Computed example of a mutant assay.
Amino acid sequence: MTSITPKITPIYQTSVFKFQDLDELDQYFQDTSSRYLYSRNGNPNSDELVNAINQLEGGAGAVATSSGMSAIFASILAYCQTGDHVLCAADIYGGSAALLNTELSRMGITVTYVPFEQLYSLGQFVQPTTRLLLAETISNPLLRVADLRRLATECHNLGLKLVVDNTFATPLLTKPLSLGADISLHSVTKYLAGHSDVTAGAAVAADPEVAARLKQIGVFYGLTLSPMESWLAVRGLKTLRLRVREHCHNAQAVAEMLQQHPGVRAVYYPGLPDHAQHALAKEQGGGMFGGMMSILLEDDQEAVSGFMRRCQRFPFAPSLAGVDSSLSYPLGTSHRALTPEQQRDLGITLGLVRLSVGIEPAEELVEDLRQALG
């Protein structure tokens, strides 16, 4: 029979792999990379995804996880244990804050939140047990841009590790490890997979020993990504460059229109020249600014709801980065768990709406938002 060599990796939809005898079992434990045992420990599809993301980020090794949240969890545990202390940028995804405030605090890991303006002077927040800083390349939801090279220098001078959530930027705009970060992580659910049909995460390490630790955490805690989700994410990655280019192009057109619209009080998008970190974003992002933005409407619930109802191309769907545009409401979804004081300090108010600009024709998106603003 002619051998079959598929161009695309098949889906290895199996929980376990067969051994012929005890010799093969011994060979596996002598070199666990020689073959597969159990899909929680490794699977050809998840390994293909890991290798692709690791190459994109320029890392020394990576782990694929069941969600972006599990990638954040694994990244923190790679450096922390009971009694340790973590610094976290105050401008952070609400789920990250909830994880730190609830589950990790129960494990004896404490956290201090650092205002964006003080990220480069961390000494005042450091304790003897402080191990790392968690930050985002482009913050959620106000699109503030962190100077990762400067941040890495500050962290390393203080003996801290820098863990960066690179979800909004993707490795096509910014490669945190090349700027000095120790771990770059993603919600693969978002841009890397790109089609709103996968829930997955990934964490990439600059140090091979840390990469091995990430893998160990994934196996022991059962954070494993399924073969099917891995296969879909790999398929999505193949169009990442094309998609990100269109996301950025469309977002720029949308942001420029919204900035001129009388119904919009503010537009938060790094591609606009008056954005506080525009020059940094341009340099660090290679001239691209991403597909995410937030806008400030009237601080009135009915005004926001009316805008949502009138939008045709931006359905209210609390996620982001799919090929189809969508909008979200940070106060009621991603940052709902924050205290009112935290929400107020971050500028997350009734009128703040986050837009994920897709790859549809830009003129259609602009026209839809124009009519929705009325």
Rank of each mutant, 00 (worst) to 15 (best):
V357L: 00
H335P: 05
G351N: 04
S334R: 09
L352V: 03
I348G: 00
G351D: 02
T333M: 12
R354S: 09
P361V: 12
G358S: 04
R344I: 00
P340E: 10
G351W: 06
P340D: 06
E341G: 05
P340W: 12
L355S: 00
Q343W: 11
Q342E: 15
V353N: 06
T339V: 02
R336L: 10
Q343I: 00
L346C: 03
P361H: 07
Q342L: 08
L355K: 00
L352N: 00
E341C: 00
E363K: 14
Q342P: 02
P330F: 11
G332F: 14
H335Y: 11
L350R: 11
G351L: 05
S356Y: 12
E360W: 12
Q342A: 12
L350W: 07
P361R: 11
L355C: 02
L350H: 08
V357W: 01
G351M: 01
L350F: 05
H335L: 06
T339Q: 03
R354W: 05
D345A: 15
S356R: 11
Q342R: 09
V357D: 03
L350M: 10
L350G: 07
P330I: 04
L350P: 01
L338V: 10
L355T: 00
L346H: 03
L352H: 05
D345S: 14
D345C: 09
T339K: 02
P330L: 03
V357R: 03
G358D: 04
E364G: 01
L346W: 11
Q342W: 08
L355P: 01
T333I: 10
Q343R: 15
P361C: 09
G347D: 08
R344Q: 15
P361W: 14
H335V: 07
E360C: 01
I359Y: 13
E364I: 07
I359H: 11
P361K: 10
E363I: 14
T339W: 04
V353C: 03
Q343K: 14
V357C: 00
P340N: 09
G351S: 01
G358I: 04
G347A: 06
G347H: 09
L355W: 03
L338P: 13
A337C: 12
A337W: 13
L331D: 07
P340M: 04
H335N: 11
A337I: 13
Q342M: 15
A362R: 15
Q343S: 12
E364A: 10
S334Y: 13
L331P: 01
V357M: 02
V357I: 06
E360I: 07
T333L: 13
R354P: 01
G358W: 06
I359S: 11
Q343T: 11
Q343L: 15
H335D: 03
R336M: 08
I348Q: 00
V357Y: 03
G347W: 08
G358K: 07
E364T: 14
H335I: 02
G358N: 02
E341A: 12
A362L: 10
Q343E: 12
